[in-house]
Simulated scan of single mutants.
Amino acid sequence: MKAYEPQRCLADDHLYTPRIKQHSLEKIRLHNYYVSLFTRSMKHHWPQLAYLGLYSGAGRAVVEESGEIVETSALSAVRIDSPFTKYIFVDKDPRCIEALSARIAAVPGQHDVTLINKDVVEAVSDIKTAMPRYDKNRGLLSFCFVDPFSAALDFEVIRALGSRYKMDFLVLLMLGRDVRTNFKRYFLDPSDTRIARLIDDPHWRDEWMSLGRPNRIVKYVCEKFHAAMARLGYQSGDPHPVYNGKNALLYFLVFYSKHPLGLRFWAEARKGISAQLTFDFH
């Protein structure tokens, strides 16, 4: 089995197991490829490697189309050949945290794991407490996977972490399924702050109007998110699009690092899973 291929056709362990779509396997493969490459390459250069999983899930899921049980990103990150020295998982669903805890306990070896059962926004202080201490003798390099179910992602979380730690981010931007589908409602309701919090711009409606309401909604939001990350000093790799079976865009996986090596790893990961390298922002 390739390092990035999730474990599949697993037996039911009778713990909480949410449902996912077939297209989620592509996301898991890409995540797994990157974290495997990241730890193998960095373990000899950094004494501490931390993994942070936001919206971590339960570690396993049922694929709706096939009914098979597969291992998802959180448990895959623990099981890689060169594990991180610290793991922090955050999910507001207590069923996910309870199931993930039991599944991690069943993985051979010793793993330093903190599980936080809170909404991601409310968990920032807990994350900072759980993160390994950094000093000149105990260097710390971190990777954060942000995997929300919608575009309800508060950029303040990324700012709080990215400004404090040497941390790369892989972020799922639900720009097709959520933003494009519901954009008119988000735009017309001035009390809705979803887009503003996602792209770190409370005045985005005025800008959108000044641009003449262009139709390239997904491109606009994606570029605004890139700009927000750039203000923190991050560079972006090529976004990776994920489509459903009808070739409709669901979301982008976007990668950010402050170091060129991280971007090289991301490009290698995309190439490694034979990804589709061209996409349409419409």
Rank of each mutant, 00 (worst) to 15 (best):
R40W: 00
L49A: 08
G67M: 03
L170T: 06
S24D: 13
R8V: 07
H31R: 02
F155A: 06
E5V: 15
R138W: 04
R19V: 15
F84W: 00
K219Y: 11
K2M: 08
G176I: 09
V113P: 10
W266N: 00
L15G: 01
D12P: 07
R197C: 00
L141C: 12
E98G: 03
D178I: 11
S210I: 07
F255M: 09
M42V: 01
H14G: 03
E223V: 08
L25M: 10
C9H: 13
H14R: 10
D147G: 03
S274C: 05
A105W: 02
R180C: 11
P47E: 13
A130I: 05
A77N: 13
P214R: 04
A58C: 07
K166Y: 13
T114V: 12
A99Q: 07
V120L: 01
A11Y: 02
K246S: 14
F169P: 06
L37G: 02
A105M: 06
C9G: 07
R216W: 09
L25G: 01
V63D: 02
S73C: 14
D112C: 03
P6Q: 05
D238I: 11
A267G: 04
L54Q: 03
W204T: 09
T114G: 07
I28T: 14
L249H: 14
F281V: 08
R95P: 02
F149Y: 11
A267L: 01
K219A: 14
H203V: 05
A74F: 01
M174Y: 01
M42C: 09
V107E: 00
P132Q: 14
T114K: 15
D126K: 10
P18K: 07
